[in-house]
Design a protein around this nucleic acid. Structure first.
Length: 819
DNA sequence: CCGCTACGGGG
DNA sequence: GGGTACGTAGCGG
């Protein structure tokens, strides 16, 4: 039987753990594969003796021990593998072992690897991939909703087409009253399937089912999910919201949320600060988790709302209903539109899932962990699980997660990061942008950067520029080997894509996923909470990074370019005067540079490490632009960020670092910044921009602005009394309360800043009570409009006074000069 | 300017 | 199953 694996967990049966692998067969039928495995951890005592092994064997929970050779911190070491009856014994065994004098607090390893993860790593089984499974049919032994249940005899890697995964999205709407939140509506969306449940009568579309009450709604939901029988159940923020509230309501109303294919209820697995809702046999994909951890780095949107993400990814949006309108609709019984709104959310969630599930599956296959976990991992965790799998395959022990004190200690040590050449402020024309593909990973791979090759005693390495470190020339390091493997695999896939000539969806996806893991590999060395953290390695990679970008800058200048700006791995150039065609010159320059970089010509200091033929380090031409504005450091607030805007020959605007979409800015301020950029970059019209700013300031002074452009939105996240920090939105909410209108946690307070005495916060006025005549025009000018415009205009030597039309001496002088 | 606190997504 | 996200903004001192 050929099975596409999507998830794994374990149960304990007759005192023994049983791994459950979940998947679908070629026809899309649900499959559960049962397999046995033994939980264990490693103990690395000062000396391995028979006596110690005997003592460990007698500990509670320990079933047996054996001695294995493992590479621990670069040393071949005899370690004791300590087996336990069940996974839950492992923490107890570890507690007991750490009290052994020969082992101590730091002497146990890999005791935090969850049992099903342990199984996947050790057996070389990866979700997101096809396997040929041989086994005995044991379906009759279990009352589970799988089409096939087998006890595995063998599991071998196979290949197959795109898996047929049944996907279902859902979304709830809630209403708070008297301190209690109830679910008022619930929608589901799948393939040729849409349904909304609610319990208020109205003239609805045919997909709406009116049930008796909330309890029936919950039961209808459970029944609907089990009838549709999805492999993937999707939400947007379901971990922290939908499933949390569903759990609460089901508890109170006596409904069992039995959504698992084993008939079990949803479990809430704790992860760090939050908990995740997990179902047996179905993948709960919380798209918000994926977006917030991984995808946000690849999206333009700053806000990660379903609306913003769907809008960017799908080009489709939520139905426009404000929170207040939703509450009002429910109160007044105008629920037909609410049902449409609710269903649309599920539809967007469903379509986003179809869009991103293939990527998640590929990531799962590469990292070797289930989509449930992978979709909730941060970048550094993704790399760590990849490294953990490679470590096992290569005989290395995975380092322990650092303890709190260790993290604090690491935090205290900083090193020089990427090199930043301060931008030449102002407007530039004819710009080429070059950057290194995966600069840090390619340095780690090219220069053999790894914790165990650092400052090796048996070879005299070439010093890392600007440091007192070197890396071994004779032996390959674990970390560098793994990163090199990632880079080479990606290059191999890229080669396949090139060879295929046509669009290869699967290969593209694989290449993208490999890039994601590769690019996070430096972070997993530099991040203070990481298992493979190494201050010296991270410092060395950064030092090499500075070396290569500075080399690029020097060479670019020698070749007749003016370097406008450079940051870490990118270099912005324009003609120094003699270059006519910047694009052509930049292309030639990068080809010449690449001949000097490791991977094409061999680097001097890693002569013994074979990298012939593979382009590990590569400078690429990212793009060319007709015009750009660069904002230098030290102007305005926040200095470390790259802040520039570019426009290409097609008129596309690229804005970086200029936060035009911050939520605490009113719409007017955001529009002003964008408009000013368009004046400057598209029309080359500085005076026009100033004139525009002046006209806006004047309009605000005259209060001739629609009030909705001045509204600031902020959310109440708790009850009013709980606030210790009284921000403007809290003040506005207090006023709403005093004036006898409904308010409560979760509401988005819409307010404006009014004239009068007291701090800005104190003068926050709820939108409904506000009139444009009473707005504090000085606040809007000085704290919103002018700062937004000045971010851009300060570079062109425009002063604030000019914008406000106050006629400073400078302004007058300029005016006179021109006139 | 510094230190403390709150925020994100969801309804 | 250990650890306490993470980077930023606003406020008060």
């Amino acid at each position: 039987m050929r099975v596409f694996l999507v998830d794994a967990d374990y149960i304990v049966e007759d005192g023994k753990p049983l791994v459950r692998l979940f998947g679908v067969d070629a026809n899309g039928a649900s499959v559960c594969v049962l397999d046995t495995y033994e939980p264990y951890l490693y103990a690395a005592p000062t000396h391995v003796t028979k006596e110690l092994q005997d003592r460990i064997s007698k500990q509670d929970g320990v079933t047996r021990v054996d001695v294995v050779k493992k590479n621990l911190n670069g040393q071949e070491t005899d370690v004791i593998r300590v087996y336990a009856a069940t996974p839950s014994d492992i923490p107890n065994v570890r507690d007991a072992l750490k009290r052994f004098r020969e082992i101590g607090h730091e002497g146990c390893y890999e005791y935090t690897i969850n049992f099903y993860k342990r199984y996947l790593i050790d057996r070389g089984v990866a979700p997101g991939a096809w396997y040929d499974v041989d086994g005995n049919d044991v379906k009759k032994n279990y009352e589970w909703d799988f089409k096939v249940i087998v006890k595995a005899k063998s599991i071998r890697p196979a290949s197959g087409e795109k898996p047929k995964l049944r996907t279902l999205a859902f979304d709830i709407e809630s209403y708070e009253e008297g301190g209690k939140t109830r679910i008022i509506m619930l929608s589901l969306y799948g393939e040729r399937y849409k349904r909304v449940y609610t319990y208020k009568k109205a003239k609805y579309a045919s997909y709406v089912d009116t049930v008796k009450d909330e309890k029936e709604l919950l039961q209808a939901f459970v029944n609907a999910v089990r009838a549709y029988d999805p492999d993937v159940l999707v939400t947007y923020n379901g971990d922290e919201f939908d499933f949390a509230l569903l759990g609460e309501r089901c508890d109170e109303l006596g409904i069992r949320l039995t959504l698992g294919r084993d008939g079990k209820e949803v479990t809430h697995v704790r992860r760090m600060r939050v908990s995740s809702a997990r179902l047996a046999g179905r993948v709960h994909m919380d798209l918000y988790q994926l977006v917030n951890n991984i995808l946000k780095f690849h999206l333009d949107t700053e806000t990660l709302t379903l609306d913003a993400v769907a809008s960017e990814v799908l080009g489709d949006r939520k139905i426009e209903v404000t929170y207040e309108q939703m509450l009002e609709a429910w109160r007044s019984g105008q629920t037909a539109r609410l049902a449409e709104y609710n269903l649309k959310d599920s539809e967007l969630t469903y379509r986003l899932a179809l869009h991103f599930m293939p990527l998640v599956n590929v990531l799962a296959r590469i990292v070797g962990q289930p989509p449930f976990d992978v979709s909730r991992m941060s970048y550094s965790q993704l790399v760590e699980w990849y490294l953990t799998r490679q470590a096992h395959a290569m005989g290395y022990i995975t380092p322990n997660q650092p303890k709190f004190e260790e993290i604090e200690h690491r935090r205290g040590r900083t090193y020089a990061g990427g090199y930043v050449k301060e931008p030449i402020g102002g407007i530039h024309e004819g710009i080429a942008v070059m950057d290194f593909r995966s600069l840090y990973p390619s340095i780690i791979a090219s220069h053999n950067i790894s914790p165990e090759t650092l400052d090796c005693a048996d070879c005299e390495g070439v010093r890392v520029p600007g440091t007192k470190h070197h890396f071994c020339k004779k032996r390959k390091g674990f970390y560098s080997t793994v990163v090199r493997g990632l880079i080479e695999e990606r290059l191999r896939i890229k080669g396949q894509i090139r060879k295929a000539g046509h669009e290869q969806e699967d290969l593209k996806l694989e290449e993208q996923a490999l890039k994601m893991v590769t690019n996070a590999s430096y972070g997993a060395l530099a991040y203070v909470g990481a298992k493979w953290y190494s201050y010296e390695c991270a410092e060395s990679a950064a030092a090499y990074g500075r070396y290569y970008i500075e080399l690029t800058i020097t060479e670019a200048e020698k070749s007749g370019f003016t370097v406008i700006y450079a940051d870490t791995d990118s270099c912005f150039v324009k003609s120094g005067g003699k270059i006519k065609n910047v694009e052509k010159a930049a292309a030639e320059f990068k080809d010449n540079m690449n001949k000097k970089l490791p991977g094409i010509s061999e680097p001097a200091d890693v002569r013994n490490i074979s990298n012939r033929g593979s382009k590990i380090m590569e400078l690429e031409l990212q793009g060319t632009y007709t015009r750009g504005i660069f904002i230098p450091k030290g102007s305005g607030h926040g200095t470390a960020k790259k802040r520039y805007a570019l426009i290409d020959s097609k008129g596309n605007l690229t804005i970086r670092g200029l936060e035009t979409v911050r939520r605490d800015w009113c719409a007017l301020a955001k529009n002003v910044q964008r408009e000013v950029l368009m004046y400057i970059l598209k029309k080359k019209d500085k005076e026009g921009a100033i004139g525009y700013m002046k006209s806006v300031v004047e309009k605000v002074q005259k209060k001739n602005i629609p009030i909705r452009d001045l509204v600031i939105h902020e959310q109440l996240t708790k009850r009013l009394e709980e606030y210790r920090q009284i921000g403007p939105h809290v003040v506005a909410a207090r006023k709403i309360k005093e004036r006898g209108r409904p308010y409560g946690p979760g509401m988005v307070v819409a307010y404006v800043i009014a004239e009068g005495n007291g701090s800005i916060s104190q003068r926050a006025e709820p939108l409904e009570d506000a009139s444009v005549e009473r707005i504090d025009s000085d606040y809007y000018i000085n704290n919103q409009i002018v700062p937004a415009g000045m971010r851009v205009l300060q570079v062109l030597d425009v002063t604030e006074d000019e914008l406000k039309g106050l006629g400073s001496q400078q302004t007058i002088r300029k005016f006179v000069k021109k006139g």
